[in-house]
Write a protein that binds this DNA or RNA. Structure first.
Lengths: 223, 223
DNA sequence: TGACGCGATGACCGGCGGTCATTTAACTCC
DNA sequence: GGAGTTAAATGACCGCCGGTCATCGCGTCA
């Protein structure tokens, strides 16, 4: 049994070097991600994460003290990656229209469903059973990324002030969280929403987000 | 033991009449609400809900098939009450400015923290472990209330069309959900956010919501 | 007052997050 | 290359909690 798995194994069975530990950590995060993408936070079992990497359940807890810590770490990675993508888009020269910006933000979230789903869980679930240190490290990273984004936004849209840029970012965060929850629904709810007369409750994440940000920016500009 | 509790008991020990059953159901919802207000969904144990009403744990499950069903029923009540309040406010004559409306919505949510906290859990948690029938009943009620609100909004703000009114409502829903999660944080996160430099991440629910809706409406009007 | 229906009970179950004594892979030193 | 050392991995085990159900006994009515 060890033999069969050992062949597929990239990381040595015992990760002793820091480099191998880091690789093992990544394996676990990848497994958690894949399982989460197929189901939901509640449905992902720590034992499944372990099984997917060919490790024992106890081993997962050597790398992450709690289930929430594992997923918060995953969110941390995804958030960093997404901010990098967004800030890359915003780093171009010139000024934009509000609608251009809204589309750019919405497009940058394309294919980031995992990220937005986890983001929606951040405050309600993930920050519940986690050390202060980890929660702080996460928020610290958010803060830095937000600062960069705020500066870039002000460069792209001249009518933004530091205050309105901050308001805009928080607002977009709230919209992403809220709209993701409305759009990404449980199987039970999906069945209900399929009914024709339920149309007003159905939400197209991307379209709705673009429209909302566009409207918000028009409102800020018209002030 | 039965004696001591029996004195306080309003509903007879055995609820045989429909009226008594309904009263017992209310007792359970009230208990769940009180416990949720003091802690969080995860921290409320079904055994606690039972204990608070002086009943056995098994009894709770005679009234609600799952924990999620109990809380979705609670949300159902709170949502109905809040829509009634909002629609009452909107039922006045005359046209309003966008900011007046925004303030009115935000004010109607004053003291409704329990409602908004539960609303934020609706799609992620509450609709997970619930029968299709209950999920449908809930959404059906949302639909009706939303229809009324949409009509009233269009009467108050002439620049709204049926489409933009619908968009606005969904957007406000997303904002309420998202902002509530950002503002109503876990103890761990609260400790982190107390740090001075974390100020940009702190959210004042009411202020932020009012500002966002005002801006949105200005954007819709300027179109 | 006896009997019966049904609401209440709480011991019990299964599953999951999390722990820890033990095992053993991997590295070191001679 | 073999003996010794370190610490990563293991998996049986624990406690807790949502949920079940055989049993009990209250309230009702003949």
């Amino acid at each position: 049994m060890v033999g069969a798995l050992a062949e597929k194994r990239i990381v040595p069975l015992r990760a002793r070097r820091d480099e191998d530990k880091e690789a093992r950590r990544r394996e676990l995060l990848d497994a958690a991600r894949a399982l989460f993408e197929a189901t939901s936070f509640a449905e992902v079992k720590m034992a499944d994460v372990a099984a997917r990497t060919g490790l024992a359940k106890g081993t997962v807890f050597l790398y992450f003290p709690t289930k929430e810590a594992l997923f918060l770490a995953l969110l941390d990675d995804l958030l960093t990656a997404w901010f990098a993508k967004l800030n890359g888009r915003l780093a171009q020269d010139g000024t934009w229209t509000g609608h251009q910006l809204a589309r750019s933000v919405a497009e940058s979230l394309e294919g980031e469903e995992t990220f937005t789903r986890l983001l929606a869980l951040a405050q309600t679930v993930l920050e519940q059973n986690v050390t202060v240190a980890q929660a702080r490290a996460f928020k610290e990273r958010v803060l830095v990324a937000m600062g960069t984004t705020s500066a870039l936004l002000q460069a792209r849209l001249p009518f933004l002030t530091p205050e309105t840029a901050g308001q805009l970012i928080r607002c977009v965060h709230a919209l992403v969280t809220g709209l993701r929850q409305m759009a990404d629904i449980a199987p039970v709810a999906r069945e209900v929403l399929t009914l024709p007369h339920m149309a007003p409750l159905r939400v197209d994440f991307r379209a709705e987000l673009t429209a909302a940000i566009t409207t918000l920016l028009r409102g800020l500009e018209a002030r």
